[in-house]
Write a protein that binds this DNA or RNA. Structure first.
Length: 419
RNA sequence: GGAGAGAUGCCAGAGCGGUUGAAUGGGGCGGUCUCGAAAACCGUUGAGGGGUUUCCCCUCCGAGGGUUCGAAUCCCUCUCUCUCCGCCA
């Protein structure tokens, strides 16, 4: 969440922000301000009453221990206690309202984010490599996979339904190789520590990274246990340090983890219905950073470079896109997408999304660090990015490395992993 | 799933219902001593929030309710952890 003080000091800034994010009118800021004012008034008033209660109760204790009469004082406390009770109830109701709205407010935007309505206004910041030339008509990965009998969508449907798939033989092995290659690259060359954590998390975790409460429809939740299947390893990784105070020396802290990711893909009916591009379960290697605030934008550039390096070593053409204000996710202040070239689909496909969340997630999840001994803890900045989505990487390898006879050449960097 | 035990500050570990935000020990930090270090001794060391913001106040002893003028201490519910049994990749 954003700093509540911003609401008091500069409400126009937030109004403008919502405008840029195409969210104007979605949130009643004036009502929120009113609730906050009432809320703080109630806090101040109960504070006074409690102070009275503490003082008088001590007085009562003192008199009783001396055997003196305290009946008058006890009588006096009845009114005070009734007042506290009423104000507590009011405060609780106001706090709930306030937090609900606050949690659904999006993050601030960095000034470098271009203004725009939707993905058409995103800015391409660079291209790497070139589109490969084929002396035949390149096929989409799902056709290649069907012909080689390594991607089985029919049986995926039989087992779990639409948008599920089965890998057989080479595809299963190739994806495993891709994941291992990516993890090794990030841990041995980019300084990330490999983590393995649960794929199922509690609501506090989902709130911490911003999935809940606003976007509940997009995830699988096991109601009976109050747990959710993670849509990305960002959730367990970022929440590793929820409710903790880190030492300055621990920063910057880089972690990576491979996981399956589960998404309902609500609202994307009819989109990317074939193949591996949009499915309910896919594997991904995620990169997460905890850093000092001053460094977070530099760290974002390095994070994108770490993700790009995967495609460079695979020698696959891609471009990097800076998302515009209307397309950046609610939690993020600035996001770069890496889009890989898919010759069979004849378009670029998002394969990584790298974001700087500033203190938005850290405030929700209470992830702090000690700037200097004796000082109050400060919020860290968190970042994350895919490094990369494994299923889409598999599809990209299949399409870019396909041969005229319908086979796939294994990229050099993956060969050690295919022995 | 069955039976039992427990949940207190960075850690360990006390805490007749009243002045306990919390004894004591350890650790950390600062100091004395020392050529330096160790030892010893002295001091200091949680977080969140509100305000009339060099200071004052409120809240927090797993979470949520309740009893009471007053709860870390009493009652209820929940969660989690540990031990034993059962089951099991």
């Amino acid at each position: 969440m954003i700093d509540p003080k911003l609401l008091r000091d500069n409400i126009d800034y937030i109004k403008e922000l919502l405008q840029k994010r195409n969210m104007a009118g979605a949130i009643d800021l004036d009502a929120l301000k009113r609730i906050d004012d009432e809320r703080r008034a109630a806090i101040a008033k109960t504070g006074e009453l409690r102070e009275t209660r503490n003082r008088v109760s001590k007085e009562i204790g003192g008199r009783k221990s001396k055997g003196e009469d305290a009946a008058a004082l006890m009588k006096e406390m009845e009114g005070v206690n009734a007042g506290i009770k009423d104000l507590d109830a009011l405060q609780e109701s106001l706090n709930t309202q306030f937090n609900d709205i606050l949690l659904s407010l999006p993050n601030v935007l960095d000034s470098s984010v271009p203004e725009g309505k939707d993905e058409n206004d995103n800015k391409v910041v660079r291209y790497w490599g070139e589109k490969p030339k084929f002396d035949f008509e390149p096929k989409p990965h799902f056709d290649i996979g069907a012909e080689l009998n390594i991607l089985d969508f029919e049986r995926g449907v039989k087992l779990a339904g639409a948008r599920f798939y089965v890998y057989r033989g080479l595809a299963a092995r190739l994806e495993r190789a891709i994941i291992n290659f990516m993890l090794d690259l990030h841990t041995t060359e980019h300084g990330y520590t490999e983590i393995f954590a649960p794929f199922i998390v509690n609501d506090d975790s989902m709130i911490g990274t911003g999935q809940y409460p606003k976007f509940k429809d997009e995830y699988y939740r096991i109601e009976r246990d109050g747990l959710s299947l993670i849509p990305t390893a960002e959730v367990p990784l970022t929440n590793l340090y929820r409710d903790e105070i880190l030492e300055k020396e621990q920063l910057p802290l880089y972690v990576t983890m491979q996981s399956s990711c589960f998404r309902r893909e609500a609202g994307s009916a009819g989109k990317d219905t074939r193949g591996l591009v949009r499915v309910h379960q896919f594997q991904k290697v995620e990169l997460v950073k905890f850093v000092e605030p001053e460094t977070s934008f530099d760290e974002l550039e390095k994070l994108v470079a770490n993700a790009e390096e995967v495609l460079r070593r695979l020698n696959i053409h891609y471009r990097v896109v800076l998302l515009c204000s209307g397309d950046v996710s609610a939690s993020s202040a600035k996001t770069y997408d890496i889009e890989v070239w898919m010759p069979g689909l004849d378009r670029y496909v998002e394969i990584s999304s790298c974001s700087n969340f500033l203190d938005y997630q850290a405030r929700r999840a209470r992830i702090r660090y000690r700037r200097a001994k004796g000082e109050k803890p400060a919020l860290v900045h968190t970042l994350n990015g895919s490094g990369l989505a494994a299923g889409r990487t598999l599809a990209a390898v299949m399409e870019n490395y396909q041969t005229a006879d319908g086979a796939i050449t294994i990229p050099d960097v993956l060969r050690p992993y295919m022995k």
